[in-house]
Amino acid sequence: MADALKRLSDEGVAIWLDDLSRQRITTGNLAELIDQQHVVGVTTNPTIFQKAISGGGDGYEQQIADLAARRLTVEEALRMITTADVRDAADVLRPVFDATGGRDGRVSIEVDPRLAHNTRATVAEAKQLAWLVDRPNTFIKIPATKAGLPAITETISKGISVNVTLIFSLERYRQVMDAYLSGLEKAAAAGLDISGIESVASFFVSRVDTEVDRRLDAQGTPEATELRGKAAVANARLAYEAYEEVFSSARWEALEKSGANRQRPLWASTGVKDKAYKDTLYVEDLVAPGTVNTMPEATLDGVADHGEIRGDTVRGTYDQARADIEALAKLGIDYDEVVQLLEDEGVEKFAVSWNDLLKSTEAELARLAPPEA
């Protein structure tokens, strides 16, 4: 059943699950996915936690009742809940972490999305989350906003591994890689052992097609129809070209000699939104060595069931990818406008999910609070 997933892994693609809940941990489901589906990492985000925790079920009620008894604020309580899940998932994945020398076996937890435009607060939150989870196989997720870039550098310089999230544009991706290298240089200058610092750069995929296809459909011409479903893959493939360039530079080679690890491209948002496309599109067309593909479980199952892994589908495609992006420009679709819109919407959606989660957690704390003495 999982032969396609094994082939994907053999091609140098790390398979991560884009989901987490307490039930996955306590029932052994996460351990099964590691054992049977070649899963070697887990990513979370505010939306995932909102779905997992809302309602207080699936193993959360007792902890929420205990937190209510201690009269914690809702924000304090929510961090106790989410970091407990990440800590427990990290323990399940610890054998993978050890077996891969720290490369995989990691779990990501995101800074408060409402801090996305506040550099100093983002760094402070990253340090606090790393302390709360207290596991070496944790990634702290920081959004790739303009304010996030210096926060990435500062967090990396403290020896904290980072998953950079919400990357949509090629220009911003290059800035993210620069921020990572700058962080490593600062860490090395401070005398830290940089060989223990890891990072991934989460380049979002399906949302690009969703927005570009909407604009193409509004035009309704044969030329526009021909370009449907091409923007996201082309954008990601050109990101890999940029990755190859940066991580073969003299600047990188100097860091590599000091033990630095490459910041791997991670394909995020790989669940297909348009049912006209094959459900495994953003896996099969983005196979390249040294990448991570983080999948929702439905996509993971789809690859296992009917995935067609054809080897490397990225290198050697750059000219066609550029041609596809240029063709979109000729139809008046502004690339810079699209990717900025997607970044803004991404930050906003996660902030909305976080606020919804705070409200539902507050309601559960109130419901389970002991009577006043």
Rank of each mutant, 00 (worst) to 15 (best):
A2G: 15
D3A: 15
K6W: 07
L8W: 10
S9G: 13
S9A: 15
S9R: 15
E11F: 05
L17E: 10
D19W: 10
D19R: 05
T27A: 10
N29S: 15
L30V: 07
I34E: 10
D35R: 14
D35T: 14
V40Q: 13
G41T: 03
V42P: 02
V42L: 10
T44H: 08
Q50E: 15
K51S: 13
A52F: 12
G59R: 09
Y60N: 14
Y60F: 14
Y60M: 06
Q62S: 15
I64A: 12
A65W: 01
L67Q: 11
R71L: 08
L72K: 11
A77E: 02
L78Y: 04
A84P: 04
D85L: 05
A90W: 07
A90Q: 11
R94W: 13
D98L: 14
R103W: 09
D104R: 03
R106H: 05
I109T: 11
R120C: 11
V123D: 08
K127V: 15
D134L: 05
N137F: 13
T145N: 05
K146D: 15
A147N: 09
P150T: 11
T155K: 07
I156E: 04
I156S: 07
I156V: 15
N163D: 10
T165H: 06
L170W: 02
L170H: 10
L170K: 05
E171V: 14
Y173N: 03
M177N: 07
D178T: 13
D178Y: 03
G183E: 04
E185P: 03
A187S: 09
A187Q: 11
A189G: 13
G191N: 08
G196S: 09
I197P: 09
F203W: 04
R207V: 03
V208K: 00
E211N: 05
D213G: 03
L216M: 02
G220D: 05
A224W: 00
T225C: 01
T225N: 13
E226Y: 00
R228A: 03
G229Y: 00
V233D: 00
V233H: 00
A236F: 02
R237H: 01
R237Y: 00
Y240Q: 01
Y240K: 01
F247E: 09
R251L: 05
R251Q: 11
R251H: 08
W252N: 09
E256C: 03
S258G: 11
R264M: 15
P265H: 07
S269C: 04
S269V: 06
G271R: 03
K275P: 14
K278G: 15
D279K: 05
Y282S: 09
L286R: 03
V287L: 08
A288C: 04
P289N: 11
T291N: 07
T294K: 07
M295I: 05
M295R: 11
P296S: 09
V303N: 08
A304I: 07
D312N: 15
T313M: 12
R315N: 12
T317V: 02
Q320S: 12
A323D: 05
E326C: 00
A327F: 01
I333L: 01
D334K: 00
D336N: 04
V338Q: 00
V338K: 00
V339K: 01
L342A: 02
D344K: 12
D344I: 12
V347Y: 10
K349E: 15
A351P: 04
V352T: 14
L357I: 10
L358F: 02
L358I: 13
L365H: 10
R367N: 12
A369Y: 06
P371D: 12
